[in-house]
Every structure is written in C-alpha cells, then in structure tokens.
Amino acid sequence: MRLGVNIDHIATIRQARMTYEPDPVKGALIAQDAGADQITFHLREDRRHIQDEDVFRLRCTIKRIPLNMEMAPTEEMKKIAVEVKPERVTLVPEKREEITTEGGLDVVSMKDFLKDFVSELKSKGIDVALFIDPDADQIDASVYVGVDAVELHTGEYANAETEKRKMEELDRIKKASVYAKEKNLKVFAGHGLTYTNVQPVAAVPEIEELNIGHSIIANSVFWGLDEAVRKMKRLITQARTKL
C-alpha cells in the first residue's frame, strides 16, 4: 500500500507568522527520504497554507515520487495544474468558511461539468481522482465522469464517537471499495486517519493508497518528520501483511 504524505500543515505553521519557515518543500524532501510514496498538497482558493510558489518549487524539487495536487474544480486551479503538471490531480470540494474538507465532492450533481473538466486535465497527461463519500451513487457518477480513481472520504469513520458507529462506517468504506474496484476504478482513501485508527482502513484489500497529513505533521513536533512518516508507513505495512 502506498502512503501519500500531505504537507499542507507545514505551510499552515509557516503562514501563522507569514514567515519563511518551516518550508513545506523541505518537509516534502524529508518525507520522500523517509519512505513516502507520494507527496500530496492542497492549493486552496484562499491560499490559507500552500502558496503558488510552493507548488512550482515542489514540481522542480520532488522527482523520485509523484505529486498529487488536491484542488477545487475551478478554472483558476485547472490553469495552474496544467502548467505544473503534477502526476495526479484530486478534485475536492472547498468552502472558504470550513476548517478542513468536510465531506466528499458531490459528483452526482455536477457530473456533466466534471466530465468536461476531467477530460481537459487528462488530455494534458494528468491522472485524475475524485474525493468522494463512500457511496455507490457517487462511484457510478465518477465512472461516468471518466476519472482514473476515487479517494474515499474516511472522515465519518475517523470521527465516529462510538465503536458501533465506527464499525458501521468501516463497513461502508469496505463495501464502497469493493464496488469501486468492480467498476475498474483505482481506490484510495484519506481524511482524519491517525496512528490509532489507520490500520483497519489499511487492511481493506481494495484500497491501494492512503493520503495522510494532519496526524503525521502534528506528531512530527514530538518525533521529527522522518520518524513520523516511518511510523505511519510501518503501521500500514503491518496491516497489509496480515491480509
């Protein structure tokens, strides 16, 4: 299983003081050397963390592993993506007032718009994934849109307040993963995953990639980023070897 390390919150710390450190590009290099399989970043419309300059520096610096650019499906972001050419674009919903992404993209309600949007990105040689809730209707709409993959939103699982609710959400993720795979989509997952809840999701056979940011960056304060990435990678590997 691949681990995509999201570096957004390195930039969040930097932007808190509007200074030059910590540098998210340096963090990306450390994550790469620690065993990350991909660097993920979200260029938001409000530029609350990652900045345009970071994106272009990442493209010039990270060569051994892919870049995954999370972005809202807007013309501004499409123009930047076409110029930067990350290996993958993941389209996500975005609200200016939210603290973090609150749910999956509603592909059903915007599938005709997204079909053209995705087609243009793919014509430039960029793989495209959609960040969606683990729902069959959203998966069917994703097939219609023509994407390569879906990333299942694991936030409801991660935030479940009872064990019963957590298991219900995990079951929902498992069923959606099987269904998406049957539809010939690659299956990824992410959002809210931590060192204590990641293994059940990592053990889902159909999921081939997890994208994790906040927990890794938060714990790097205590362990260092290199060790924080390595620990997460070990947990994921352990979960997969039990299959």
Rank of each mutant, 00 (worst) to 15 (best):
M1R: 06
G4E: 06
N6H: 05
D8K: 05
D8M: 07
Q15A: 14
D23G: 03
P24V: 05
V25W: 03
I30M: 10
Q32T: 15
A34L: 01
A34W: 01
D37M: 11
V55D: 02
R59A: 13
K63L: 11
E70Q: 12
A72D: 10
T74Q: 12
E76R: 15
K79H: 11
A81Y: 03
R88I: 12
R88A: 15
L91R: 02
L91P: 02
V92N: 04
P93D: 12
E97G: 09
T101V: 01
S109N: 14
D112Q: 14
F113N: 10
K115L: 11
D116I: 13
E120A: 11
K124P: 08
I126N: 09
F131V: 08
P134S: 08
V145T: 06
E161R: 14
T162F: 04
L170I: 05
K175W: 04
A176R: 01
E182A: 10
K186E: 13
V198Q: 06
Q199K: 14
A203N: 06
L210Y: 07
N211K: 05
I212K: 04
H214K: 03
I216H: 01
S220M: 08
V221C: 12
G224V: 06
K231W: 08
K233I: 09
L235D: 01
T237F: 11
R240M: 13
K242L: 12
L243C: 13
